[in-house]
């Protein structure tokens, strides 16, 4: 077990993983202010959490999952309040053909899977455990996400991190 005081835990979480949480939020939110709000919410939850973590990896996975859940909640709230751009529909890519923008335009499940796999480096099984989905489902998300990206970017996507 990972024995560390609450304050130490929190400090490590902020210094090491706030960037990861921010990136996860940035994949979802359209502007940085909303992303920062999400990050703050995540860390508030960390402060309120009473349990302990088995390792730093466990802490990171927990932070990411909370961030993804928070984004999901926000999208539901947003869809109920007004009629913005539909988050689940792939929006047309930005003019600079940025891969990041294309990924952000993906549907939520595909986007999460691609980010966690190709940036954070989790395997499909780890992503499945993190998101609460079977491994095969995660693999199908990755597969379909890549297909959508290919369509959107109309370029060959080499999958080097499989």
């Amino acid at each position: 077990m990972w024995r560390v005081s609450q304050e130490e835990l929190y400090r490590i979480a902020v210094e090491n993983y706030s960037d990861s949480v921010y990136r996860a939020a940035a994949h979802h939110c359209t502007n940085p202010i909303d992303a920062e709000d999400v990050v703050q919410d995540v860390y508030e939850k960390l402060l309120r959490r009473k349990g302990s973590f088995s390792s730093e990896e466990h802490l990171k996975a927990w932070l990411l999952r909370v961030a993804i859940n928070r984004c999901h909640d926000l999208s539901r709230a947003a869809s109920q309040k007004d009629v913005p751009l539909e988050e689940t529909m792939p929006a047309p890519p930005a003019a600079d053909h940025s891969v990041l923008d294309a990924v952000r335009a993906l549907p939520e499940q595909y986007r999460n899977a691609i980010y966690l796999h190709y940036f954070e480096g989790y395997t499909a099984a780890e992503i499945g455990r993190l998101l609460g989905a079977p491994t095969n489902t995660v693999l199908s998300w990755l597969h379909r996400g890549r297909a959508l990206l290919h369509t959107m970017l109309q370029e060959e996507i080499e999958d080097e991190m499989v």
Binding site: Q6, V14, S18, E36, V39, Y115, E158, E160
Partner: peptide, 29 residues
Amino acid sequence: MKWFEYQMEVDQLHASDALKARLLAMQPD
């Protein structure tokens, strides 16, 4: 286009120092 382009783009995202300061300033309850 390789995946590393994506990674580089994401690398450029990071929590601002102000945000981190705010986070550290938060106290339980």
